[in-house]
């Protein structure tokens, strides 16, 4: 094989008001063909209202080996959650 066809990540907005959600990828020569292929592949059964395609090489991901150091600090900070604070029931929802 001589030339590679670029890879695209496909994001679909499933319903009005929701954000686009990643649903897969595909190969296409340019963004117009990528959008066409995404429509034909990923929205045949009413899956969405809008498509984004992003060149896969434009996506940078966090390192899975760093899961703990990246995300653990967000778990043990209980004081970031509303339930950490004791609010008497009498004063109503807060």
């Amino acid at each position: 094989m001589s030339k590679e066809t670029p890879l695209w990540e496909v994001f679909i907005r499933p319903r009005n008001g929701l954000s686009h959600k990643h649903c897969g990828s595909l190969h296409a020569a340019d963004e117009i063909m990528a959008l066409n292929a995404a429509r034909d592949t990923y929205t045949r059964r009413g899956e969405g209202l809008s498509i984004w395609v992003v060149p896969s090489k434009a996506i940078f991901a966090s390192d899975p080996d760093q899961i703990e150091e990246n995300f653990e600090p967000g778990v043990d900070k209980v004081y970031r959650h509303p339930t950490f604070y004791e609010i008497p029931e009498e004063v109503g929802h807060m």
């Binding site: 004081y79 970031r80 959650h81 509303p82 950490f84 604070y85 004791e86 609010i87 008497p88 004063v91 807060m94």
Partner: peptide, 13 residues
């Protein structure tokens, strides 16, 4: 935001 209001109320309490 909910935590913001609750921590404030708790501090005032």
């Amino acid at each position: 935001e909910s935590f913001h209001q609750r921590q404030g109320y708790e501090a005032v309490m």
